[in-house]
Design a protein around this nucleic acid. Structure first.
Lengths: 198, 198
DNA sequence: AGCCGTTGTTGCTGCTGTCAACACGGAGTA
DNA sequence: TACTCCGTGTTGACAGCAGCAACAACGGCT
């Protein structure tokens, strides 16, 4: 039901949004290398050149997808921290949300951190990535009591921890016993974050 | 001078090794997506299908490249730890070597952690990756005094830290002030590892 | 009604991965 | 020495892809 397309309609309706929706599905099936604009077009019942009306090229679609991913990550982070008062609990919750996001949206996560930055990222997508970092920085600031730049090493180390764990999980490099069930993963993430001190 | 090819010689000499040498150069220039077997062949003055005598397909070349990367990483890690007696110093040295390796060989590092594991990795390359992990696990064991599986969370958290920092550095997501000079990066890495406790 | 910008279409070029058939040349054997 | 064989490299194909250009339908505007 993603695309409701009345019989014989020439125009699609919202091809741009449909592309951003179908692309992760293609990536999930065929891998990031296996993604092609033509395949996306095919699945949406649209001609092979139609996507170019909405994205200058394939890379542009990917950066848009990355931007969407960062927006969702920020939303998930805020959601996870919402009812927590203790800044250290909040930071930890963000970390867990980060890892959970990577596992639940592996396609987005991979795209978010694989676009070889040519500097041609749309401002709004650039901003989405910056906001995810800024949210982490503020939370770390509160959790550590550091500020004025002194919080940066703490921020970066916590980010490294969450990011590294996410990547290793996605790459299947974590021994199976720790990834068998969602609870096991959650426990692993918790014990990983326990080894961090602000 | 990578390829010394006597005048008019039909056979190349060691095309396989030459491919493993030229591929990172192509990646460095055109990015991972921009790598093509045909371009490698062109640079080696060889026909476009010649690489297929040595690699079943493009993916196979990439996994071989990843294997080579892991072998070098292990070598760099051992080298960095060689003269250190205190296990905690050794672990830290491995971490620094890990980050340094990523920055000095970004092409290898990216390939090492981007092959979407289809299970068709050659045994010797699989083993190379496992050895890098095993070296880290042993070192963590010594540094923490934990063993029998209890060292795993510590191992994985340290790996996450080193791996996450490497990836973020490679992706250009670390604020510029910390990446301006090699010394700044080294200092950042040190302060990141300082926030880890076994 | 008529105009025109947006969106989608068809058809092309040049590149790529991959395969099959063939060619070269060195190693071993008669 | 001559012959054969196998590993390695070549040529020539095919299909799929990114991206461009010229054309066509739609829909909102006057």
């Amino acid at each position: 039901m993603p695309t409701k397309k009345p019989r014989g309609q020439y125009h699609h309706g919202d091809l741009r949004a449909a592309l951003l929706e179908v692309a992760p599905a293609v990536i999930a099936e065929r891998g990031l290398h296996g993604l092609s604009l033509r395949e996306c077009a095919r699945r949406l019942g649209v001609s092979h050149a139609a996507p170019y009306r909405h994205f200058a090229d394939k890379e542009t679609l990917l950066t848009a997808l990355a931007g969407e991913g960062f927006r969702r990550l920020v939303r998930a982070g805020r959601e996870a921290m919402r009812d927590l008062a203790d800044p250290r609990d909040r930071l930890r919750a963000y970390g867990l949300a980060y890892v959970r996001f990577a596992l639940e949206h592996p396609e987005h996560h991979r795209v978010m951190f694989s676009c070889e930055d040519d500097g041609r990222i749309a401002p709004e997508d650039r901003a989405a990535g910056d906001e995810a970092f800024e949210l982490l920085r503020e939370t770390t600031e509160e959790a550590t009591g550091l500020s004025g730049g002194a919080e940066m090493p703490a921020t970066l180390s916590f980010w490294s921890l969450a990011h590294g764990l996410s990547m290793l999980l996605l790459d299947g490099r974590i021994p199976a016993e720790h990834t068998a069930t969602p609870e096991a993963v959650e426990a692993l993430a918790a014990s990983v974050f326990d080894r961090w001190r602000g």
